[in-house]
Design a protein around this nucleic acid. Structure first.
Lengths: 207, 207
DNA sequence: ACTGCCATTGGCCACATGGCCAATGCCGCG
DNA sequence: CGCGGCATTGGCCATGTGGCCAATGGCAGT
């Protein structure tokens, strides 16, 4: 047996971190060297320990898991990061992989899958929880919202009207209306209210 | 030391279950006797093992954690159930306590808090993660939606218009409008779209 | 250089929305 | 047995919405 894979855990759920640490440390192939409960703390600990593989939760208060991943990758492009997800929203998966995650594992996965994923990630392979590829296929058929449309979506959720959206973005109510129409079309929503619901369900908007 | 507290874990996150089991079994005061990944399975295992304390996750696909709790309590009124939550939406907390949960602990709580909560629950005490009482205080000031309004809310989220809501509920568009107005007032929303957003944020609506 | 996507803007129109007025019948709590 | 909360319904009206028509300028990839 070679020296164990050194792991960093970043998850705001202390119970999850403790549980994972217990479970993984019981396996001689792994060694958990540190655990953080938020993004900034995670970056700090990464710098300090330079772990072989980082397990990063997608949903965290304050700095988003995705945002944390981006910063981590921009500072250490060779880092190996395995994302852990509760939500399984396809949006998060795509964002994570585009941001340079080596893998994406659902928390509903069985422990053996997780350990296998960690080993694969360490070896430089790309790993996806089974059942997630199909969701990515859906995306190919579905359409992606543009950056501007996402911006409008965030104003829509607040209940703003088209004129209000326009004045905030410095555009005409006509243009705001066009963006809203595009959003409705792409999300297959019948009105702005259902669009917000669908956006929450697909992970485009977060609580 | 008395005989260990026998525990049942119900959580759709297999990784969390395994982690918890590992951590809790390391403590001689506890003994995890079974783990289920959904509501029906949990009820089945409860019947089979009759654990001292059940740890139940609030958010699960299929049968809701709250719904599972209700069924569990109706079959075994003397059961001791400690809810585990990721979301911390006040709605879930209130619902859980009304449904007969002995306690409610956030997954962000530190492990020591969890073990203390389990022991307290077993002793018949009522336990809340610190920081959660304040949320319950908010509720006292805030208003509660009536059953009818919740019903309307579920139609609102689908993007239905007042006439459509009326015809589904067998009432006039006027009445539907009155319910929507009441919802807007109680949630402090400026229109139906923001109402849906706020409902998601407060746990009145779920993904 | 050419093509395609995106952001931008305009008008017209049937319909829905939310605010404001007020009224009735029912049920449970004190 | 009355009081209050809840569900129900009605009209009026200024404003917003979403569908449909069409057009222009910019930026990026081929």
């Amino acid at each position: 047996m070679k020296s164990p894979i050194r792991l960093l855990l970043i998850d705001d759920h202390a119970v999850m971190r403790a549980g994972l640490a217990n479970m993984l440390n019981a396996n001689p192939a792994f060694q958990v060297v540190a655990g953080a409960d938020d993004g900034p703390g995670g970056l700090e600990l990464y710098r300090k320990h330079l772990p072989d593989v980082t397990l990063l939760d997608v949903s965290m208060p304050g700095m988003d898991g995705i945002e944390c991943l981006r910063k981590l990758r921009s500072s250490w492009p060779k880092s190996h990061v395995l994302m852990l997800s509760s939500s399984d929203a396809e949006e998060d998966i795509v964002q994570a992989l585009e941001a340079g995650a080596c893998g994406y594992v659902s928390k509903t996965a069985r422990p053996a899958e997780l350990t296998a994923a960690i080993i694969a990630t360490h070896a430089g392979e790309r790993v996806l929880s089974h059942g997630l590829e199909s969701r990515l296929a859906d995306r190919a058929s579905g359409t992606t919202l543009t950056a501007r449309e996402i911006e409008v979506l965030h104003l829509l959720r607040k209940g703003l009207t088209n004129p209000e959206i326009g004045s905030i973005l410095g555009i005409t109510r006509r243009t705001a209306k066009a963006h809203v129409a595009a959003i409705l079309e792409k999300l297959q929503a019948i009105d702005r209210t259902e669009a917000v619901t669908l956006a929450f369900e697909r992970g485009l908007l977060k609580l």
